[in-house]
Amino acid sequence: MIPAHVLAQGKTTILVLGDSLAAGFGVEKEEAFPFLLEQRLKEEGFEDIRVVNGGFSGSTTAGALKRMKWYLKLKPDFLILELGANDGLRGHDIASIRRNLEKTIVYARERKMRVLLAGMKIPINYGKEYTLKFEQIFTSLAEQYSITLIPFLLDGVAGRKDLNLADGIHPNPEGHKIVAENVLAVIRPLLTESK
């Protein structure tokens, strides 16, 4: 059921488990940041690397663990966890968002994956209390499990008309390039280290 050539490629596998940002909502898959990340890594000499795009528009943290299990088929070495934004936008309970992310992180670490957690923010119209608590989920998890935090994935992109699609939320191809650089800056030292 999985074409054989797919299983053969790449030695180091990076899994991006994410939502519409990773899935490249509104842009081609080849323009979304996971694909660009792989390209940039190869340019930098990390030849034998594969980035798997586990992005899925609209997904929330509730399914994160289940999805994680699906990707075990590909034996990932790194996990970039990019989830939580949709939970926040839907006003979900803060504690349950944290719990879901935590379970996924623990599961991945048990299977010897290095985990990178992408930090998320939600618009301030949700009220100060909620937005603040939401942002704290990521910092506190990173601290608790000593995992690498990408402070804000959309750093330098969010709120800029020229880097986002007309909806004002999702990055355009130019925006994705910057997102890829944001991720690259964090993952580069980890890869060099493991080499």
Binding site: I2, P3, V6, W70, K73, L74
Partner: peptide, 12 residues
């Protein structure tokens, strides 16, 4: 048909 399901191709 081959579907990409969350990054994994499945053929049927």
């Amino acid at each position: 048909l081959t579907f990409d399901i969350q990054g994994i191709p499945i053929q049927g």
